[in-house]
Design a protein around this nucleic acid. Sequence first.
DNA 1: TAATGGATGTTCT
DNA 2: GAACATCCATTAT
Length: 205
Amino acid sequence: LKNQGTSRRLPRSFFQRYTPTVAKGLLGCRLVRVIDGKRLSGIIVETEAYRGSGDPASHAFRGRTPRNELMFGPPGHAYIYFTMGMHYCLNVTTEPEGIPAAVLLRALQPIEGVEAMMENRGVKDVRRLAAGPGNLTKALRIDMRLGGEDLCSSERLFFEHGEALRVASSARVGVSSGRTRRWRFYAEGSPFVSKGRPSWPTTHN
DNA sequence: TAATGGATGTTCT
DNA sequence: GAACATCCATTAT
């Protein structure tokens, strides 16, 4: 019983795999943020994979830079970036060290600390609390200070096992290149996914 | 319900 | 100077 918390954690081996597989596998798992000893958490319902130097939509497409450096590092770490002058986006690094890859966390179904998330967001509709990558980080109070955090050992931000969900896929949201890859994954029928709708129809795996 | 544009800053050409 | 892994309010349909 005393190991209940840690035993449910996703281990590093989970993240050291082919990135689209990790992105799919994260659906149904729990993302947990601990603030002042309180748990804010939700079930992951939407993710996107960004992989390798051959993926034109990836930040690592043009090689290593100060910003994307963490993508080249070991798996299971937080890669966070600031975008559009306003929002933070949370990724978890994947694949063995040296392969630039990560999974973007795009939406959660809020479970624990819903009241706190409402305060952080200034929104009451639970369906919108963590729908979209910028909203997700705002709800969980995630910013650059958590960049590089080891999510396999952190006490502030980590993943827990969950139940398998029915998975659908589409092209990634908000990217103009790399449209041939359908590396956005989401829980089919979930009202908690972000509004970004793909141009291609959905399929399931 | 769909399209548009503003807020805002970092990165790259 | 343009593009950008965004979000929301406003406007048009």
